[in-house]
Simulated assay, not measured.
Amino acid sequence: MKFLVAIIVTAVLFFSNKITAQENVSITATVVNVTSDEGKVSFALFDKENFRIKSLQSVLSEIKEGKSMVSFTDIPSGEYAIICFHDKNENNKMDFATNGMPLENYGASNNVMNFGPPKYEDAKFVVADKNVSLEIRF
């Protein structure tokens, strides 16, 4: 009987550790070509449903030697996209010219740059059971 209880307890601990590990996956995103160390880089994590509407997590990061890095933590398995921009004047928004062209550099996961705002299908990536590391270029 004690042996059976030990097996059950071990199985419960094993499976609960697996669940915890999957819930604690992180995404590390690094912009590698910021043009100056002035200001900050603003990163936003999205899923398909809320892409460019409301981020799941947002993080501001300092710039050191043209690089800026953030981590999004406790990410469940799924499909996501990241958009970021260089908030050079630190007004917490992306600035645009009167003709609609961006005045600040921006990028998205997968580094697909088309005319117009990033598209979810171009920027999406999958999070499974391992940490994800991405390099983004403006």
Rank of each mutant, 00 (worst) to 15 (best):
33 N>K: 06
20 T>C: 12
36 S>D: 12
108 A>S: 12
108 A>Q: 05
27 I>G: 03
67 K>M: 06
70 V>L: 08
33 N>P: 07
79 E>N: 09
106 Y>A: 13
60 L>C: 07
54 K>Q: 14
98 T>H: 10
11 A>F: 07
80 Y>S: 09
25 V>P: 02
27 I>S: 10
89 N>L: 01
16 S>E: 07
46 F>P: 00
32 V>W: 08
1 M>A: 14
94 M>E: 03
29 A>M: 06
103 L>V: 06
24 N>F: 10
46 F>A: 01
102 P>F: 05
40 K>Y: 08
2 K>I: 14
26 S>A: 10
95 D>V: 06
134 L>C: 02
19 I>K: 12
106 Y>N: 12
39 G>Y: 10
82 I>R: 05
60 L>D: 15
108 A>K: 05
68 S>E: 00
43 F>S: 00
132 V>D: 01
20 T>R: 15
50 N>V: 03
102 P>R: 08
98 T>R: 13
13 L>I: 15
43 F>E: 00
75 I>W: 02
114 N>I: 14
125 F>H: 05
26 S>V: 07
121 E>D: 15
7 I>C: 11
44 A>D: 01
102 P>S: 07
87 D>Q: 02
14 F>R: 11
134 L>V: 01
90 E>K: 15
9 V>H: 01
131 N>M: 04
62 E>V: 11
127 V>Y: 02
50 N>T: 08
28 T>Q: 09
64 K>V: 08
106 Y>Q: 10
128 A>R: 08
105 N>H: 12
42 S>H: 13
14 F>G: 05
27 I>K: 10
30 T>E: 12
46 F>T: 03
119 K>P: 00
51 F>P: 02
97 A>V: 04
7 I>T: 08
64 K>D: 11
4 L>P: 00
52 R>K: 12
107 G>W: 02
12 V>M: 13
87 D>V: 03
111 N>Q: 03
110 N>Y: 06
23 E>G: 14
26 S>H: 06
84 C>D: 04
131 N>C: 02
125 F>R: 12
127 V>R: 02
29 A>I: 02
4 L>T: 12
14 F>N: 09
104 E>D: 07
13 L>S: 14
34 V>H: 03
128 A>H: 08
135 E>K: 10
69 M>V: 11
113 M>R: 07
23 E>A: 15
106 Y>D: 10
54 K>V: 09
14 F>A: 15
68 S>L: 03
29 A>W: 02
75 I>P: 01
137 R>V: 11
92 N>R: 09
56 L>R: 09
